[in-house]
Design a protein around this nucleic acid. Structure first.
Lengths: 199, 199, 199, 199
DNA sequence: TATGAATGAGGGTTCATTCAT
DNA sequence: TATGAATGAACCCTCATTCAT
């Protein structure tokens, strides 16, 4: 199994660094090879082609995302709490690896439609975690029974994603993790003034 | 003034069609020229370079977005209503021009960092419309006083954008406009079951 | 006759300025037209094509060269004196119009082989002036009877030309005209130490 | 070291042929590659860009010029003899490689100002050989003590260059090498009839 | 496995020239 | 005569991929 060999990971990590430092369109195979300390041709022993390298970057990182977040979620009881740790961990992982944040929020989006579709397939694993929380919340009566899971998932992911992208575009100059409580609040209660406060 | 000449608009419209049909990276100047019914060189009488064509596509379309939405908003009294017509019109404009939807939701995002930054500058006009609604809602007591405008704006835009992108990725196979009420509800009240309403 | 109309001269002078300021390859018809204060198309009412403009620049200027130099030569008696005023005037004309110097010594040489051949045809008028001086000198016994006119002409023209070109490449930072006596001396006597002087 | 690899020389030689046969402005990289029997891209493994190819042609050939001429000069005792073998070898090298003659005398002069300056830098090595002969001749009392080295160098180089260019423009239809003695004579003694000295 | 030299397709842009007004 | 908007051909260079070693 190629994916377990050390050079596989080595190339993936090199790709993240090269893309973050040079941008998507300047991330040539030769640069990735040099960063990984292998020859250009060697990359083709581990990956089918360049698209496969980029997709693998996303796949590996997303798997890590899902794993970490599933762990964190499991420890919480309520859907609201699960949602909170999901948001917080989403922000934390990006905060802890700024290169990864640049790559996923800005650079990989420059890939063409074909790769975008494949990336969206991989993303589904992550979105399912969200769906599970939403279904669980509805079952428990925490979330509104009439909630459309797909729409709610789009709201939550769209909000987290837009928040993270804005943070990267602002060159990480404020703390992303500390926005988690407010984002959580917005997602749970929306913008509307709630009864007591607005009175 | 070049921008008022008929060929200017003609080239912009041709660019939308070509990008939608061929994808960002396959939208060569020669294809756009052919679609517009002009010679390749003519494009350079109206635009500085290819990037200028693409940025102008976004600028012209976004101006149209802002204009239409400002008109619609002006007719409404409450912030909640303004927000509703904004969401509905955002979805309506994309629904009415599927090529435009493909271009703004998928293709133009493949532009490189430099163009992305310029596009983001143009986008600010649109985001400001959102900010005005949010501020207005807070003034009127409709929206919670403690609402962070920037975060709320990111939530709203992120939600609309993610909803629209998912719709495009699903090849417009369901009705986007009819999602507006639910999206509006989510943005106003969030996911949380609200005692009285859920009864 | 087109060549006597004011716009003909106007375009020629504009071409000299544009070529001197922008270089041969950056001397587009549109720049020359703008400098001359006419429309692009107007140039084609006076010249067959761009090559014709450039060749005409050379032809007009060379005619002026020949005329001025013939006048100066006529006043002198000996071949040596005629040669001296030729060298001095050659240097003087270039010194008095630095743009012309740049154009003839550097820029027009970048023209392609076809134009070079035509320019060489025009140059023949000038070289004939030299030939006449040489023949006259031989007749008068001033110049060595065995002198090969063509070779001597190449030596004289080559020397003047190389001297002028080096001066232009050095950005006119020394006085060209004052080199005339030494150049004259070299051409007459060569490098060799002459008996009496070397004693 | 790239310059020692066989393909480097191979591309240089191909460039000389292509430029001589097609002219400077028609010497496309693709033609040079085809002539060299390599792919277009291969040229860019050995040269930075097209200008680098052209400059290298001149640099390599000029180095050969300087080397051959230095060898020939070293064998001679007097400055006059050194000068003679320099002229003869200058003419001989061009005579032996007619393509090279076309390239250096006509085509490379069409390069733009930037490349011209770089070519002039390379040419300095050659001109220094001339300077050394002139200085040596003055030391030995062979050449006139008051000789201005720079001017004399310009005369000699200008004469040789003009003679060679005229020969190329006349399509090599007479023998260039056999002109060397007369050119040598002209350079040494000038045009002037030297009654007594010539006895 | 690993190397890295060689390949070759593909496109934005310029500008001399034309021609309807 | 004069205009200037429109034309469209032409080319350097990059880089993903291959394959002989």
């Amino acid at each position: 199994m190629r994916r377990n060999k050390p050079k596989y990971k080595q190339i993936i990590e090199a790709a993240v660094v090269v893309i973050a430092e040079n941008g998507y369109h300047q991330a040539q195979i030769s640069k990735i090879a040099r960063q990984a300390g292998v020859a250009d041709g060697t990359i083709y022993l581990y990956f089918k082609n360049k698209e496969d390298v980029l997709l693998s970057v996303f796949r590996e990182k997303m798997a890590m995302f899902v794993e970490k977040i599933n762990e964190a979620i499991a420890e919480k009881e309520t859907a609201a709490d699960k949602l909170f740790v999901m948001i917080e961990n989403h922000f934390r992982i990006l905060s802890e690896d700024k290169n990864l944040a640049i790559v996923t929020q800005l650079e990989l989006r420059q890939s063409d439609k074909q790769l975008r579709y494949k990336i969206n397939e991989v993303l589904k694993d992550y979105l399912q975690v969200l769906d599970h929380i939403l279904e669980y919340g509805k079952e428990q009566g925490e979330f509104s029974a009439g909630l459309d899971t797909r729409l709610a998932r789009q709201m939550i992911f769209g909000t987290m994603d837009e928040t993270a992208t804005t943070w990267v575009l602002n060159e990480h100059k404020y703390d992303l993790i500390s926005l988690a409580p407010q984002v959580h609040g917005l997602i749970l209660h929306g913008c509307k003034a709630n009864g007591k406060l607005s009175k």
